[in-house]
């Protein structure tokens, strides 16, 4: 219940303040969002399997975001920023799909 309220507050704040992304953050924000989505989908799966743990979620969320951003930063420094971003997005996408498939199997038994 509380997380749903947090979600609503976040969306409303984004719509109301309409901030522009700072230029320094611009390359990292999309990847960070995908990484955070991965963490959220994993949490949903754990919730479905009744083994959700707040601490694990918080740690995985933050570490996902930080590591994804760091990889993009590293790629930029090495001159392979776009390729590495693509790689990170592909890996995170695969994980999101896998977790979504697990949730689907649990809910629909299919």
């Amino acid at each position: 219940m509380i997380p749903v309220i947090g979600l609503a507050i976040g969306v409303i704040a984004g719509l109301v303040f309409q901030p522009t992304v700072p230029t320094d953050l611009q390359p990292y924000l999309p990847i960070a969002i995908v990484a955070a989505l991965d963490a959220v989908v994993g949490a949903l799966r754990a919730l479905g399997e009744r083994r959700f743990d707040d601490r694990v979620f918080v740690v995985s969320f933050i570490s996902n975001v930080v590591i994804a951003a760091f990889m993009v930063y590293l790629g930029d420094q090495l001159g392979v920023g776009s390729q590495l971003s693509t790689g990170v997005v592909v890996v995170l996408g695969i994980r999101i799909f896998a977790n979504a498939a697990a949730i689907r199997r649990r809910i629909f038994h299919a």
């Binding site: 997380p3 947090g6 979600l7 609503a8 507050i9 976040g10 969306v11 704040a13 984004g14 924000l29 960070a32 969002i33 955070a36 989505l37 959220v40 979620f57 918080v58 969320f61 933050i62």
Partner: peptide, 8 residues
Amino acid sequence: LIGGLAFA
């Protein structure tokens, strides 16, 4: 965290 994600 979820609120921050939604905001982002």
